[in-house]
Write a protein that binds this DNA or RNA. Structure first.
Lengths: 226, 226
DNA sequence: CGACCATTTGATATGGATCAAGCGATGTGG
DNA sequence: CCACATCGCTTGATCCATATCAAATGGTCG
């Protein structure tokens, strides 16, 4: 046990999922688990809330949202997943959220049992499963903190988060609609839209198109971010 | 590996913390980790945000809150921990929240390294560390969902949560102040207070004293809970 | 009893929601 | 290639839930 392995999934040219992982990548020292690449059109469901969580997923291309719906019909988006991100890993038997493709997306589908089996034999893999869930926990904690902030603060936090994750430049290409953003931030589309124009007026951002956002004054956004 | 052990911490009569766990309790099949019992007076800090997370804790008596403070001075309470609950377990090096005793509290202090060391040798322990973090994740996900509900819904959810955890009857003895509740629900004390009186008016609850709450109509509360 | 702190209650303000209309981009059929 | 429908987004007008500011009440402890 105790390699410096990190959980890392790579697609296998042409195969269906099977449960015999190649233990270690010779160069990167990362575990390569096999999985079936699978494509989902825009808005297609990848899995539903309360469905058996027999698989987890890694985004290859496109984007994914997870969400829950309240009984009054409102939707809360739990997270956005970008290429390279892993989602849908559960400890319990069922998925806690539903998952949908935001744009046409390709994802790698991995059998959870394969990974858990590997973790039983390799303590380092076990530690990384734990570590992944802990990272997810921190993300949700930050999300909860976001939900008590003002609309300006929420939008600023969101833009900074997306800039850090998607672009590493100052121009963000948003894959999701205003409604998706609103449901992630706990606001309405109107408030998101108004807040963006307000930030534009204050010269904190520019909006060349509605889906493209340029961060013009990170300092100002960070001060909101708090 | 793979006992049916569950992580279970019991105080040891008179000892400081050391790192040699007794592997298995003969009767319950649960691992008994030693730890130092420690007392904290009301409002005392148990640990601070960003401090090294070398220890985790189990509540023996009293109650604990974890929280973060925004740069504008507002406080968000992340969780309340009741007797039997474990808190302060991190995967990373530092605590993500601060922890304080709500009432005079006794907690068992456990060295994380002891537990992690055990997990390296016993896959079942490793699985339970993971499982604990996953449970915490679900709790925070539910908390995030709560934060987009109306004041009535938040208060109702809170009461039902406390009833389930603390009492298993219909009378709850709240250990925390209105301010604590407000900071947990993302509301002001005034709104919490008004909402409680409103629920009392609607005969959903009774308030014999400000800290004692009787659930009179769970159905009504559950409908709010959504 | 009196001081202090937690809680409730009242009056008013306000940020964001809601309702409604306009606008711009994209796509479709004639 | 253009008229027009559609969809996503923005902007405007108004409303409302909760915050804020302020005062009264109640419970606890010296």
């Amino acid at each position: 046990m105790s390699t410096n392995a990190s959980i890392q999934f790579s697609p296998v040219p042409s195969s269906k999922a099977h449960s015999h992982p190649v233990p270690l990548h010779p160069l990167t020292g990362t575990i390569e688990l096999t999985g079936a690449p699978m494509s989902f059109p825009r808005n297609a469901e990848i899995y539903g809330e309360n469905e058996p969580a027999d698989y987890l997923y890694k985004v290859i291309s496109g984007n994914v949202r997870t969400y829950r719906v309240l009984n009054d019909g409102r939707r809360q988006i739990g997270a956005f997943y970008l290429p390279g991100d892993i989602f849908g890993l559960e400890v319990g038997a069922e998925h806690q959220f539903s998952a949908e493709a935001i744009s046409d997306a390709k994802v790698l589908v991995i059998k959870r049992s394969a990974l858990v089996g590997l973790a039983n034999r390799d303590g380092e893999v076990a530690r990384q499963l734990w570590s992944f869930t802990a990272r997810e926990l921190r993300r949700v904690q930050d999300h909860a903190l976001l939900l008590i902030k003002s609309a300006q603060q929420r939008v600023a936090s969101f833009l900074l988060e997306m800039a850090e994750r998607a672009a590493h430049a100052d121009t963000i290409e948003l894959p999701m609609s205003r409604q998706d953003i609103a449901d992630y931030l706990g606001l309405t589309i109107e408030t998101v839209s108004r807040t963006l124009t307000q930030l534009e007026t204050e010269a904190a951002i520019a909006l060349p198109t509605s889906r493209r956002i340029v961060l013009r004054n990170r300092r100002a956004l960070n001060e909101l971010n708090a």
